[in-house]
């Protein structure tokens, strides 16, 4: 920056390149393995130049693991979570910022509490609710020795994959924070013009939130696609597996032919969609990442 430091510069470049190579290596290695025939993958050292069998390996992985159904499931789940999270968050934030109502602060704190309750720490009871949506009522009725006869299971359904993950404290806070920065005059003017609250939302607030929505979209889509524990719990039928869960079945077991090339081809199929989203929408992604965590 200020002085000339050729030696330090050289080492800086060298270490940076080395770092990039180290970080990128697992993905490159996966890509190469996915392009090789079985005999080459099992060689040591495995060649580090891509072969020509990529399509064949992908086809083998898709057939062996039913990846086409799983890709579709993952896509629907990620999209459902994204649209759901953004929709419920933006309208809750709108209500909390622009309406004076009795349980405003209570609602805010209830949403805030979800931050402290990741699915990992309430696995069983959440599973019970998903297995029967009316189980809370059942328990409440039982206290009074009454029977609540309705059952409704979300297991092995798209709603089961999506709904429990749709609440979002961070997204709600992000919108709330953004709405608080909007000038007061916007609401005053639209009131004066006789707009209803929902007209104000659709015509003014929503269009202004578009950048925030785009930034959130990328990050929520990627985390939605990458969900693992919850899909593992609520889906038992292979036809409802998401690709991140399903592709793990391609990992060769001890007594199987070690088809790591097929496994890596499957891994590639599972990883490429979120990687593409992050790389192509990098600007939005970085913005979303930084603001999402505030």
């Amino acid at each position: 920056m200020v002085e000339r430091t050729p030696i330090l510069d050289f080492f800086s470049y060298a270490f940076l390149v080395l770092g990039i190579v180290v970080v990128g290596f697992p993905i490159y290695y996966c890509l190469v393995a996915a392009t090789l025939p079985l005999s080459e993958v099992l060689k040591y050292p495995m060649p580090l130049i891509p072969g020509e069998k990529l399509l064949e390996n992908i086809r083998a992985a898709v057939e062996k693991g039913h990846l086409e159904t799983q890709l579709w499931n993952s896509f629907l789940m990620a999209l459902g979570i994204t649209v759901g999270k953004i929709s419920v968050s933006i309208i809750s934030a709108f209500a909390i910022v622009y309406f004076n109502f009795r349980i405003r602060m209570l609602a805010f704190w209830m949403i805030f509490m979800t931050l402290m309750l990741p699915v990992e720490i309430r696995i069983l009871p959440t599973y019970e609710v998903a297995a029967n949506l009316f189980s809370p009522f059942k328990s409440l009725f039982r206290i009074f020795n009454l029977e609540f006869g309705l059952d409704f299971s979300l297991l092995n359904t798209y709603s089961g994959l999506i709904l429990p993950l749709v609440a979002s404290a961070t997204a709600t806070f992000l919108f709330r924070q953004f709405f608080l920065t909007l000038p007061e005059e916007l609401c005053e003017a639209s009131k004066m013009d006789g707009a209803t609250p929902m007209q104000f939302f659709w015509k003014i607030v929503f269009p202004l939130s578009k950048t925030n929505i785009a930034a959130l979209f990328v990050i929520v889509f990627v985390t939605g696609w990458n969900q693992y524990l919850w899909p593992l719990l609520v889906t038992t039928e292979p036809s409802m597996d998401t690709i991140i869960v399903g592709v793990q079945h391609l990992i060769p077991k001890a007594d199987q032919v070690p088809q790591w090339n097929v496994a890596m081809a499957g891994a590639l199929v599972a990883m490429v969609p979120p990687i593409m989203v992050v790389l192509l929408m990098q600007r939005w992604f970085v913005k979303g990442l930084v603001e999402h965590e505030k």
Binding site: Y98, M113, R122, P136
Partner: peptide, 26 residues
């Protein structure tokens, strides 16, 4: 801001339902 007896409750209800059912109750 607005004063409205129903609308804010409608707006927060989707998120509230999910929070109660899948977070607070469990």
């Amino acid at each position: 801001h607005y004063e409205n007896p129903i609308l804010p409750y409608l707006l927060i209800s989707p998120q509230m339902l999910i929070v109660i059912l899948f977070f607070l109750w469990p």
